[in-house]
Design a protein around this nucleic acid. Sequence first.
DNA 1: TAATATTTTTAGATTTGTCTAAATTTATTT
DNA 2: AAATAAATTTAGACAAATCTAAAAATATTA
Lengths: 219, 219
Amino acid sequence: MNLTTSEENYIKSIYHLQLVSHLVNTNTLARELNTKAASVTDMLKKLKTKKLVKYERYYGFKLNENGTRMALRIIRRHRLWEHFLVSKLNFQWDEVHAIAEELEHVSSPELIKKLDSYLGKPKIDPHGDPIPDVDGKLPVIKQINLFDLVNLKPATVSSVSNQSPQMLEMLKHYGIGIGSQLKIIRAFPFDHSLEIKVSKQAPCIISEQVAKNIFVYHD
Amino acid sequence: MNLTTSEENYIKSIYHLQLVSHLVNTNTLARELNTKAASVTDMLKKLKTKKLVKYERYYGFKLNENGTRMALRIIRRHRLWEHFLVSKLNFQWDEVHAIAEELEHVSSPELIKKLDSYLGKPKIDPHGDPIPDVDGKLPVIKQINLFDLVNLKPATVSSVSNQSPQMLEMLKHYGIGIGSQLKIIRAFPFDHSLEIKVSKQAPCIISEQVAKNIFVYHD
DNA sequence: TAATATTTTTAGATTTGTCTAAATTTATTT
DNA sequence: AAATAAATTTAGACAAATCTAAAAATATTA
Protein backbone atom coordinates (compact mmCIF):
# COMPACT_ATOMS: atom_id res chain seq x y z
CA MET A 1 0.00 0.00 0.00
CA ASN A 2 1.14 3.53 -0.78
CA LEU A 3 0.92 6.22 1.88
CA THR A 4 0.97 9.98 1.56
CA THR A 5 3.60 12.01 3.39
CA SER A 6 0.97 13.11 5.87
CA GLU A 7 -0.23 9.58 6.54
CA GLU A 8 3.38 8.49 7.05
CA ASN A 9 3.94 11.24 9.60
CA TYR A 10 0.87 10.21 11.55
CA ILE A 11 1.86 6.54 11.52
CA LYS A 12 5.37 7.33 12.66
CA SER A 13 4.19 9.58 15.51
CA ILE A 14 1.68 7.04 16.72
CA TYR A 15 4.47 4.46 16.79
CA HIS A 16 6.67 6.69 18.92
CA LEU A 17 3.86 7.60 21.32
CA GLN A 18 2.97 3.94 21.73
CA LEU A 19 6.41 3.28 23.17
CA VAL A 20 5.31 5.37 26.14
CA SER A 21 1.63 4.53 26.49
CA HIS A 22 -0.20 1.56 25.10
CA LEU A 23 -3.11 3.61 23.78
CA VAL A 24 -2.62 7.02 22.19
CA ASN A 25 -5.12 9.86 22.52
CA THR A 26 -6.14 12.54 20.10
CA ASN A 27 -4.74 15.54 21.96
CA THR A 28 -1.36 13.92 22.54
CA LEU A 29 -0.95 13.16 18.86
CA ALA A 30 -2.17 16.63 17.92
CA ARG A 31 0.51 18.18 20.14
CA GLU A 32 3.17 15.86 18.73
CA LEU A 33 2.31 16.78 15.14
CA ASN A 34 1.70 20.49 15.76
CA THR A 35 -1.84 20.20 14.52
CA LYS A 36 -5.37 20.33 15.94
CA ALA A 37 -7.40 17.58 17.56
CA ALA A 38 -10.03 17.79 14.82
CA SER A 39 -7.40 17.10 12.17
CA VAL A 40 -6.22 14.06 14.08
CA THR A 41 -9.75 12.66 14.25
CA ASP A 42 -10.15 13.18 10.51
CA MET A 43 -6.90 11.41 9.71
CA LEU A 44 -7.60 8.54 12.07
CA LYS A 45 -10.83 7.76 10.29
CA LYS A 46 -8.82 7.52 7.10
CA LEU A 47 -6.14 5.33 8.65
CA LYS A 48 -8.88 3.09 10.00
CA THR A 49 -10.44 2.58 6.57
CA LYS A 50 -6.92 1.78 5.31
CA LYS A 51 -6.68 -0.83 8.08
CA LEU A 52 -3.57 0.60 9.68
CA VAL A 53 -4.92 1.40 13.15
CA LYS A 54 -7.36 0.11 15.73
CA TYR A 55 -9.56 3.10 16.50
CA GLU A 56 -12.89 3.43 18.30
CA ARG A 57 -14.22 6.90 18.79
CA TYR A 58 -13.61 8.46 22.20
CA TYR A 59 -11.42 5.51 23.21
CA GLY A 60 -7.99 6.28 21.74
CA PHE A 61 -6.12 4.29 19.12
CA LYS A 62 -3.05 2.21 18.33
CA LEU A 63 -1.32 0.76 15.30
CA ASN A 64 -2.34 -2.72 14.24
CA GLU A 65 0.17 -5.19 12.78
CA ASN A 66 -0.08 -3.60 9.37
CA GLY A 67 0.45 -0.11 10.72
CA THR A 68 3.37 -1.18 12.86
CA ARG A 69 5.04 -2.71 9.82
CA MET A 70 4.62 0.55 7.94
CA ALA A 71 5.94 2.59 10.89
CA LEU A 72 9.08 0.48 11.10
CA ARG A 73 9.62 0.86 7.38
CA ILE A 74 9.49 4.66 7.73
CA ILE A 75 11.73 4.64 10.79
CA ARG A 76 14.19 2.43 8.94
CA ARG A 77 14.38 4.99 6.14
CA HIS A 78 14.70 7.87 8.60
CA ARG A 79 17.54 6.29 10.56
CA LEU A 80 19.45 5.12 7.52
CA TRP A 81 19.34 8.66 6.12
CA GLU A 82 20.50 10.05 9.46
CA HIS A 83 23.38 7.63 9.39
CA PHE A 84 24.23 8.71 5.87
CA LEU A 85 24.10 12.41 6.73
CA VAL A 86 26.47 11.95 9.64
CA SER A 87 28.82 9.24 8.39
CA LYS A 88 29.12 10.41 4.78
CA LEU A 89 28.14 14.07 4.58
CA ASN A 90 29.75 15.12 7.86
CA PHE A 91 26.66 16.56 9.47
CA GLN A 92 26.62 16.50 13.24
CA TRP A 93 24.04 14.26 14.84
CA ASP A 94 22.03 17.16 16.21
CA GLU A 95 21.62 18.71 12.76
CA VAL A 96 20.19 15.81 10.80
CA HIS A 97 16.70 15.24 12.12
CA ALA A 98 14.82 17.78 10.00
CA ILE A 99 16.52 16.72 6.78
CA ALA A 100 15.91 13.04 7.47
CA GLU A 101 12.24 13.87 8.04
CA GLU A 102 12.09 14.91 4.41
CA LEU A 103 14.24 12.15 2.96
CA GLU A 104 12.32 9.42 4.79
CA HIS A 105 9.31 9.91 2.51
CA VAL A 106 11.20 8.96 -0.64
CA SER A 107 9.87 5.47 -0.90
CA SER A 108 11.88 3.47 -3.42
CA PRO A 109 12.69 0.11 -1.77
CA GLU A 110 15.62 -0.33 -4.14
CA LEU A 111 17.05 2.97 -2.95
CA ILE A 112 16.86 1.99 0.70
CA LYS A 113 18.34 -1.41 -0.01
CA LYS A 114 21.34 0.11 -1.75
CA LEU A 115 21.73 2.87 0.81
CA ASP A 116 21.80 0.23 3.53
CA SER A 117 24.52 -1.75 1.78
CA TYR A 118 26.48 1.39 1.05
CA LEU A 119 26.48 2.32 4.74
CA GLY A 120 27.60 -1.19 5.69
CA LYS A 121 24.21 -2.37 6.95
CA PRO A 122 24.45 -0.36 10.18
CA LYS A 123 22.42 -1.48 13.19
CA ILE A 124 22.37 1.82 15.08
CA ASP A 125 21.83 5.42 14.00
CA PRO A 126 23.96 8.38 15.11
CA HIS A 127 21.64 9.09 18.04
CA GLY A 128 22.16 5.56 19.27
CA ASP A 129 18.74 4.30 18.18
CA PRO A 130 18.44 0.89 16.53
CA ILE A 131 17.72 0.70 12.80
CA PRO A 132 14.91 -1.75 11.90
CA ASP A 133 15.97 -4.34 9.34
CA VAL A 134 14.17 -5.01 6.03
CA ASP A 135 11.64 -7.19 7.80
CA GLY A 136 10.96 -4.56 10.43
CA LYS A 137 12.89 -6.33 13.14
CA LEU A 138 14.63 -4.06 15.66
CA PRO A 139 18.10 -5.28 16.58
CA VAL A 140 18.69 -5.53 20.30
CA ILE A 141 22.16 -4.20 20.65
CA LYS A 142 24.09 -3.09 23.65
CA GLN A 143 26.05 0.08 23.15
CA ILE A 144 29.27 0.14 25.05
CA ASN A 145 31.35 3.11 25.98
CA LEU A 146 34.69 2.55 24.31
CA PHE A 147 36.39 3.19 27.64
CA ASP A 148 34.43 0.34 29.21
CA LEU A 149 35.15 -2.08 26.37
CA VAL A 150 37.25 -4.84 27.84
CA ASN A 151 37.61 -7.47 25.14
CA LEU A 152 39.74 -7.13 22.05
CA LYS A 153 37.08 -8.07 19.49
CA PRO A 154 36.33 -5.62 16.66
CA ALA A 155 33.45 -3.21 17.30
CA THR A 156 31.54 -0.65 15.26
CA VAL A 157 31.34 3.02 16.24
CA SER A 158 27.67 3.86 16.72
CA SER A 159 27.69 7.36 18.16
CA VAL A 160 29.82 10.11 19.62
CA SER A 161 28.44 12.03 22.55
CA ASN A 162 30.58 15.16 22.31
CA GLN A 163 30.06 17.15 19.13
CA SER A 164 32.35 20.08 19.90
CA PRO A 165 34.66 21.26 17.11
CA GLN A 166 37.61 20.25 19.29
CA MET A 167 36.33 16.69 19.61
CA LEU A 168 35.44 16.48 15.92
CA GLU A 169 38.92 17.67 15.06
CA MET A 170 40.41 14.84 17.08
CA LEU A 171 38.09 12.23 15.61
CA LYS A 172 38.97 13.39 12.14
CA HIS A 173 42.64 13.15 12.97
CA TYR A 174 42.23 9.58 14.16
CA GLY A 175 40.00 8.67 11.21
CA ILE A 176 37.18 7.70 13.56
CA GLY A 177 33.60 8.24 12.46
CA ILE A 178 30.12 6.73 12.72
CA GLY A 179 30.32 3.22 11.32
CA SER A 180 34.10 2.88 11.70
CA GLN A 181 35.31 -0.57 12.64
CA LEU A 182 37.76 -0.49 15.50
CA LYS A 183 39.50 -2.81 17.90
CA ILE A 184 41.30 -2.26 21.18
CA ILE A 185 44.85 -3.53 21.09
CA ARG A 186 45.83 -2.74 24.68
CA ALA A 187 45.13 -0.40 27.56
CA PHE A 188 47.77 1.66 29.33
CA PRO A 189 46.99 1.80 33.06
CA PHE A 190 49.24 4.81 33.67
CA ASP A 191 46.91 7.42 32.08
CA HIS A 192 44.07 5.06 31.04
CA SER A 193 44.84 5.68 27.37
CA LEU A 194 44.02 3.00 24.81
CA GLU A 195 45.91 1.70 21.83
CA ILE A 196 43.37 1.01 19.10
CA LYS A 197 43.26 0.06 15.46
CA VAL A 198 40.72 1.89 13.28
CA SER A 199 39.61 0.08 10.10
CA LYS A 200 42.77 -0.63 8.14
CA GLN A 201 44.78 2.25 9.48
CA ALA A 202 47.95 1.97 11.54
CA PRO A 203 47.32 1.60 15.30
CA CYS A 204 47.08 4.77 17.36
CA ILE A 205 46.64 5.80 20.95
CA ILE A 206 43.64 7.75 22.26
CA SER A 207 43.16 9.37 25.63
CA GLU A 208 40.64 8.41 28.32
CA GLN A 209 38.70 11.61 27.57
CA VAL A 210 38.30 10.75 23.92
CA ALA A 211 37.43 7.11 24.60
CA LYS A 212 34.71 8.07 27.05
CA ASN A 213 32.82 9.95 24.33
CA ILE A 214 32.82 7.13 21.82
CA PHE A 215 30.14 4.43 21.82
CA VAL A 216 30.50 1.13 20.00
CA TYR A 217 28.66 -2.15 19.54
CA HIS A 218 29.49 -5.72 18.61
CA ASP A 219 27.71 -7.39 15.70
CA MET B 1 10.86 31.83 -1.70
CA ASN B 2 9.53 28.36 -0.94
CA LEU B 3 7.91 26.30 -3.68
CA THR B 4 5.64 23.28 -3.45
CA THR B 5 6.64 20.05 -5.14
CA SER B 6 4.05 20.70 -7.81
CA GLU B 7 5.29 24.22 -8.49
CA GLU B 8 8.83 22.90 -8.72
CA ASN B 9 7.80 20.31 -11.28
CA TYR B 10 6.11 22.94 -13.43
CA ILE B 11 9.13 25.27 -13.24
CA LYS B 12 11.49 22.47 -14.18
CA SER B 13 9.40 21.34 -17.12
CA ILE B 14 9.04 24.86 -18.45
CA TYR B 15 12.80 25.21 -18.28
CA HIS B 16 13.34 22.06 -20.32
CA LEU B 17 10.73 22.98 -22.92
CA GLN B 18 12.27 26.43 -23.30
CA LEU B 19 15.47 24.84 -24.49
CA VAL B 20 13.54 23.77 -27.58
CA SER B 21 11.15 26.66 -28.15
CA HIS B 22 11.40 30.17 -26.81
CA LEU B 23 7.75 30.33 -25.72
CA VAL B 24 5.99 27.35 -24.20
CA ASN B 25 2.29 26.62 -24.73
CA THR B 26 -0.31 25.17 -22.45
CA ASN B 27 -0.89 21.91 -24.28
CA THR B 28 2.80 21.14 -24.61
CA LEU B 29 3.36 21.55 -20.91
CA ALA B 30 0.21 19.56 -20.11
CA ARG B 31 1.54 16.67 -22.18
CA GLU B 32 4.98 16.91 -20.56
CA LEU B 33 3.50 16.78 -17.05
CA ASN B 34 0.82 14.19 -17.80
CA THR B 35 -1.89 16.58 -16.79
CA LYS B 36 -4.68 18.57 -18.42
CA ALA B 37 -4.53 21.96 -20.11
CA ALA B 38 -6.92 23.44 -17.55
CA SER B 39 -4.59 22.47 -14.72
CA VAL B 40 -1.69 24.12 -16.50
CA THR B 41 -3.62 27.37 -16.85
CA ASP B 42 -4.49 27.29 -13.15
CA MET B 43 -0.90 26.74 -12.12
CA LEU B 44 0.45 29.40 -14.46
CA LYS B 45 -1.76 32.01 -12.87
CA LYS B 46 -0.24 31.05 -9.55
CA LEU B 47 3.32 31.12 -10.87
CA LYS B 48 2.60 34.53 -12.35
CA THR B 49 1.44 35.98 -9.04
CA LYS B 50 4.62 34.49 -7.53
CA LYS B 51 6.60 36.37 -10.20
CA LEU B 52 8.30 33.31 -11.64
CA VAL B 53 6.97 33.42 -15.20
CA LYS B 54 5.99 35.85 -17.89
CA TYR B 55 2.49 34.82 -18.87
CA GLU B 56 -0.25 36.55 -20.89
CA ARG B 57 -3.36 34.57 -21.52
CA TYR B 58 -3.61 32.90 -24.94
CA TYR B 59 -0.02 33.89 -25.74
CA GLY B 60 2.13 31.24 -24.06
CA PHE B 61 4.67 31.74 -21.30
CA LYS B 62 8.29 31.54 -20.25
CA LEU B 63 10.35 31.70 -17.09
CA ASN B 64 11.61 35.10 -16.00
CA GLU B 65 14.98 35.58 -14.34
CA ASN B 66 13.58 34.55 -10.99
CA GLY B 67 11.97 31.42 -12.40
CA THR B 68 15.09 30.46 -14.30
CA ARG B 69 17.13 30.72 -11.13
CA MET B 70 14.69 28.43 -9.34
CA ALA B 71 14.71 25.95 -12.24
CA LEU B 72 18.48 25.72 -12.19
CA ARG B 73 18.43 25.17 -8.45
CA ILE B 74 16.05 22.22 -8.89
CA ILE B 75 18.05 20.81 -11.80
CA ARG B 76 21.21 21.11 -9.72
CA ARG B 77 19.61 19.03 -6.98
CA HIS B 78 18.31 16.49 -9.47
CA ARG B 79 21.63 15.98 -11.20
CA LEU B 80 23.66 15.81 -7.99
CA TRP B 81 21.33 13.10 -6.70
CA GLU B 82 21.64 11.22 -9.99
CA HIS B 83 25.39 11.39 -9.65
CA PHE B 84 25.15 10.10 -6.09
CA LEU B 85 22.87 7.23 -7.05
CA VAL B 86 25.24 6.08 -9.78
CA SER B 87 28.64 6.84 -8.30
CA LYS B 88 27.93 5.82 -4.71
CA LEU B 89 24.93 3.51 -4.64
CA ASN B 90 25.80 1.61 -7.83
CA PHE B 91 22.60 2.29 -9.68
CA GLN B 92 22.86 2.25 -13.45
CA TRP B 93 22.27 5.55 -15.18
CA ASP B 94 19.03 4.44 -16.77
CA GLU B 95 17.51 3.55 -13.38
CA VAL B 96 17.99 6.77 -11.47
CA HIS B 97 15.66 9.32 -13.02
CA ALA B 98 12.48 8.49 -11.09
CA ILE B 99 14.26 8.37 -7.74
CA ALA B 100 16.06 11.67 -8.38
CA GLU B 101 12.67 13.21 -9.22
CA GLU B 102 11.68 12.57 -5.63
CA LEU B 103 14.96 13.50 -3.98
CA GLU B 104 15.21 16.78 -5.87
CA HIS B 105 12.37 18.27 -3.82
CA VAL B 106 14.23 17.96 -0.53
CA SER B 107 15.27 21.54 -0.28
CA SER B 108 17.90 21.97 2.43
CA PRO B 109 20.69 24.12 0.93
CA GLU B 110 23.12 22.75 3.51
CA LEU B 111 22.33 19.22 2.34
CA ILE B 112 23.03 20.05 -1.28
CA LYS B 113 26.22 21.87 -0.41
CA LYS B 114 27.55 18.89 1.51
CA LEU B 115 26.36 16.39 -1.08
CA ASP B 116 28.20 18.39 -3.73
CA SER B 117 31.44 18.34 -1.75
CA TYR B 118 31.05 14.69 -0.96
CA LEU B 119 30.74 13.85 -4.66
CA GLY B 120 33.80 15.94 -5.44
CA LYS B 121 31.93 18.90 -6.91
CA PRO B 122 31.13 17.09 -10.15
CA LYS B 123 30.39 19.12 -13.27
CA ILE B 124 28.50 16.49 -15.24
CA ASP B 125 25.82 13.98 -14.29
CA PRO B 126 25.80 10.31 -15.31
CA HIS B 127 23.73 11.08 -18.42
CA GLY B 128 26.38 13.54 -19.51
CA ASP B 129 24.35 16.63 -18.66
CA PRO B 130 26.04 19.58 -16.95
CA ILE B 131 25.32 20.27 -13.27
CA PRO B 132 24.51 23.94 -12.52
CA ASP B 133 26.75 25.41 -9.82
CA VAL B 134 25.49 27.11 -6.62
CA ASP B 135 24.93 30.33 -8.53
CA GLY B 136 22.98 28.58 -11.27
CA LYS B 137 25.77 28.77 -13.81
CA LEU B 138 25.96 25.85 -16.22
CA PRO B 139 29.51 24.69 -16.87
CA VAL B 140 30.40 24.42 -20.54
CA ILE B 141 32.39 21.27 -20.67
CA LYS B 142 33.46 19.11 -23.52
CA GLN B 143 33.09 15.42 -22.95
CA ILE B 144 35.76 13.36 -24.58
CA ASN B 145 35.71 9.71 -25.40
CA LEU B 146 38.59 8.21 -23.46
CA PHE B 147 39.80 6.56 -26.64
CA ASP B 148 40.09 9.97 -28.32
CA LEU B 149 41.89 11.54 -25.36
CA VAL B 150 45.33 12.44 -26.59
CA ASN B 151 46.98 14.42 -23.80
CA LEU B 152 48.24 12.96 -20.56
CA LYS B 153 46.48 15.36 -18.20
CA PRO B 154 44.18 13.96 -15.51
CA ALA B 155 40.51 13.75 -16.42
CA THR B 156 37.27 12.91 -14.62
CA VAL B 157 34.98 10.07 -15.71
CA SER B 158 31.58 11.59 -16.51
CA SER B 159 29.61 8.75 -18.03
CA VAL B 160 29.78 5.23 -19.36
CA SER B 161 27.74 4.43 -22.45
CA ASN B 162 27.55 0.67 -22.09
CA GLN B 163 25.68 -0.53 -19.01
CA SER B 164 25.80 -4.28 -19.65
CA PRO B 165 26.70 -6.51 -16.70
CA GLN B 166 29.83 -7.53 -18.61
CA MET B 167 30.97 -3.94 -18.96
CA LEU B 168 30.10 -3.11 -15.35
CA GLU B 169 32.09 -6.15 -14.23
CA MET B 170 35.15 -4.83 -16.07
CA LEU B 171 34.75 -1.30 -14.72
CA LYS B 172 34.48 -2.66 -11.23
CA HIS B 173 37.59 -4.70 -11.75
CA TYR B 174 39.52 -1.64 -12.90
CA GLY B 175 38.07 0.51 -10.13
CA ILE B 176 36.60 2.91 -12.66
CA GLY B 177 33.33 4.67 -11.87
CA ILE B 178 31.51 7.95 -12.39
CA GLY B 179 33.67 10.67 -10.89
CA SER B 180 36.90 8.65 -10.95
CA GLN B 181 40.01 10.66 -11.71
CA LEU B 182 42.13 9.03 -14.37
CA LYS B 183 45.12 9.75 -16.55
CA ILE B 184 46.47 8.14 -19.67
CA ILE B 185 50.06 7.04 -19.25
CA ARG B 186 50.63 5.72 -22.76
CA ALA B 187 48.92 4.18 -25.73
CA PHE B 188 49.92 0.90 -27.35
CA PRO B 189 49.52 1.14 -31.12
CA PHE B 190 49.55 -2.63 -31.59
CA ASP B 191 46.01 -3.26 -30.29
CA HIS B 192 45.08 0.36 -29.43
CA SER B 193 45.02 -0.49 -25.73
CA LEU B 194 45.77 2.21 -23.18
CA GLU B 195 47.81 2.20 -20.03
CA ILE B 196 45.99 4.36 -17.49
CA LYS B 197 46.17 5.29 -13.85
CA VAL B 198 42.87 5.42 -11.95
CA SER B 199 42.84 7.60 -8.84
CA LYS B 200 45.63 6.35 -6.59
CA GLN B 201 45.60 2.79 -7.83
CA ALA B 202 48.44 1.05 -9.62
CA PRO B 203 48.47 1.62 -13.40
CA CYS B 204 46.53 -0.81 -15.54
CA ILE B 205 45.84 -1.48 -19.20
CA ILE B 206 42.41 -1.28 -20.79
CA SER B 207 41.33 -2.39 -24.24
CA GLU B 208 40.11 -0.18 -27.07
CA GLN B 209 36.59 -1.55 -26.59
CA VAL B 210 36.48 -0.52 -22.96
CA ALA B 211 38.04 2.89 -23.63
CA LYS B 212 35.48 3.68 -26.31
CA ASN B 213 32.65 3.39 -23.81
CA ILE B 214 34.12 5.74 -21.24
CA PHE B 215 33.62 9.50 -21.38
CA VAL B 216 35.76 11.98 -19.48
CA TYR B 217 36.25 15.72 -19.10
CA HIS B 218 39.00 18.09 -18.01
CA ASP B 219 38.35 20.57 -15.19
C1' DT C 1 -13.37 36.01 -45.50
C1' DA C 2 -16.40 32.92 -43.62
C1' DA C 3 -16.54 28.37 -41.72
C1' DT C 4 -14.20 25.09 -39.18
C1' DA C 5 -10.72 23.34 -36.17
C1' DT C 6 -7.58 23.89 -32.45
C1' DT C 7 -6.00 25.88 -28.36
C1' DT C 8 -6.76 28.05 -24.20
C1' DT C 9 -9.40 29.66 -20.55
C1' DT C 10 -13.31 29.78 -17.33
C1' DA C 11 -16.78 27.82 -14.37
C1' DG C 12 -17.80 24.63 -11.26
C1' DA C 13 -16.77 20.15 -8.95
C1' DT C 14 -13.60 16.90 -6.37
C1' DT C 15 -9.94 15.23 -3.21
C1' DT C 16 -6.69 15.84 0.52
C1' DG C 17 -5.49 17.82 4.56
C1' DT C 18 -6.34 21.26 7.33
C1' DC C 19 -9.00 24.60 10.34
C1' DT C 20 -12.70 26.90 13.75
C1' DA C 21 -16.63 26.62 16.37
C1' DA C 22 -20.16 24.05 18.22
C1' DA C 23 -21.90 19.69 19.93
C1' DT C 24 -21.13 15.45 22.20
C1' DT C 25 -19.01 12.24 25.20
C1' DT C 26 -16.16 11.09 29.04
C1' DA C 27 -13.79 12.49 33.35
C1' DT C 28 -13.47 15.05 37.56
C1' DT C 29 -14.98 17.56 41.39
C1' DT C 30 -17.84 19.29 44.85
C1' DA D 1 -25.16 12.35 41.74
C1' DA D 2 -25.27 16.75 39.80
C1' DA D 3 -22.34 20.28 38.07
C1' DT D 4 -18.31 21.43 35.88
C1' DA D 5 -14.23 20.56 33.22
C1' DA D 6 -11.68 18.28 29.71
C1' DA D 7 -11.30 15.60 25.66
C1' DT D 8 -13.13 14.24 21.39
C1' DT D 9 -15.92 14.42 17.51
C1' DT D 10 -18.94 16.58 14.06
C1' DA D 11 -20.30 20.15 10.92
C1' DG D 12 -19.02 23.24 7.82
C1' DA D 13 -15.39 26.04 5.64
C1' DC D 14 -10.94 26.73 3.20
C1' DA D 15 -6.63 26.30 0.27
C1' DA D 16 -4.06 23.53 -3.05
C1' DA D 17 -4.09 20.90 -7.02
C1' DT D 18 -6.53 18.63 -9.91
C1' DC D 19 -10.50 17.42 -13.16
C1' DT D 20 -14.63 17.77 -16.82
C1' DA D 21 -17.41 20.33 -19.72
C1' DA D 22 -18.49 24.49 -21.77
C1' DA D 23 -17.14 29.02 -23.45
C1' DA D 24 -13.92 32.11 -25.59
C1' DA D 25 -10.02 33.23 -28.33
C1' DT D 26 -6.89 32.16 -31.94
C1' DA D 27 -5.47 29.56 -36.10
C1' DT D 28 -6.37 27.14 -40.28
C1' DT D 29 -8.60 26.13 -44.41
C1' DA D 30 -11.74 26.06 -48.07
